[in-house]
Design a protein around this nucleic acid. Structure first.
Lengths: 205, 205
DNA sequence: CGATAGATTGAGAGTTTTCAACCGATGTGG
DNA sequence: CCACATCGGTTGAAAACTCTCAATCTATCG
């Protein structure tokens, strides 16, 4: 969405190709660039010392990446990893601040996006407290699959997004299939009716 | 911090007094105002249908409140409650957008704050996955007590901030006292050495 | 077709919550 | 200023949920 506003302003940029699993930037790194996703899929992860990973945000085609750290003027607080082969375009911080001066509507748009992301993060945090694993897994299946239908989401990715483990996700998906709510197809799956799926997990005791 | 930038621009405002426990706004309400906290203490909570509450953010003197919803142009996603007797000042949305036009530095400041709040929320979300209850409780004690030392934090407030229950907080605090890390005094408490407290919970098990 | 990454399922363990009963602090009205 | 009501805190015991560990199976791809 910013992409359309931003693209015409860009004067100098670089292309970067990433394979699945490659790291775009690390937690703690000092941001030098802002990235746009020309094609592909990127995940933002927090990785604990224990190795436990938490899937914070997904970025698809036409998203921008690294903006939070840029606007907070902080090091990256998490690690960005390509979830599929991706083509990214980077512009420098300097170019970014020039563009922000030229186009105040861009800043308002970014502010609005950060405000929405904050809501999402806080509601997910609350959900970890007041929802069952099955509810969170169902919501994650719906969110991830509807937003990015072409990606074959692994149980591990779903687990890290829902705040669970891949075994628990596998079990939940077997249950959902037995209930006729989803259909597993190879490693991928299909959701028959998102509302029914959510409703089912809400009704479970 | 915005307060200093914003105050000289304000032309029209209203005062509101709240007692401890009174609700400033409800989740779902449509924002009509932005608030400044002249004095007192405010908490932002998510309240599940089950009644389970999650403590999302604290706001002390000189904070602004309601800005996330204003800048996202969304209804409130959570409920703001006075944690102590508080004096708030409201200005209308219209006045707020006028001020944002007059003072672009304010918008940049708000953007930066939202970006930092997003980091905090995402790291807390990750912490619920990869830290033990004792670690989260210790971190919450340190954060809440150091940032707002004059407030007598209840076990319930600490529990809702740390993602736990008041019983678990009471037990943890008894342990921390037995270890000589904190001192309970009436309903209040004192932290002898924040670093030692955190280190202790990191070393458990 | 073999190698490898990912998925499934079972069984058992562990952490945290829930339920319950009781105790102590605080503050207010008589 | 004391008595008492109320709100908050403590502690124990049991239950529940989810995770961990382990073994096995199945896609997918070179």
């Amino acid at each position: 969405m910013f992409y359309q506003i931003l693209k015409p302003h860009v004067q100098e940029s670089r292309e970067h190709h990433f394979k699945r699993g490659e790291i775009i930037y690390h937690e703690g790194d000092t941001p030098q660039n802002i990235y746009f996703i020309e094609s592909g899929l990127v995940g933002l992860f927090h990785i604990a010392e224990s190795g436990k990973e938490t899937f914070l945000r997904v970025f698809g085609t036409n998203s921008i990446l690294g903006h939070r750290s840029y606007f907070a003027n902080e090091p990256y607080h998490a690690t960005a990893i390509a979830l599929a082969p991706s083509l990214l375009i980077s512009i420098t911080k300097e170019e970014c601040s020039r563009i922000c001066r030229e186009s105040p509507s861009l800043l308002k748009e970014v502010t609005s996006q950060l405000a929405k992301d904050l809501k999402t993060a806080e509601l997910r945090m609350a959900g970890l407290q007041d929802k069952s694993v099955h509810q969170r897994i169902a919501e994650s299946l719906v969110f991830l699959k509807l937003k990015h239908p072409d990606h074959t989401w692994t149980r591990k990715e779903i687990a890290e997004y829902s705040g669970s483990t891949f075994e628990t996700v596998a079990r939940a998906m077997s249950l959902f299939e037995k209930e006729g709510l989803i259909k597993k197809q190879g490693r991928d799956f299909e959701i028959f009716d998102p509302q029914k799926l959510i409703a089912f997990t809400n009704s479970e005791n």
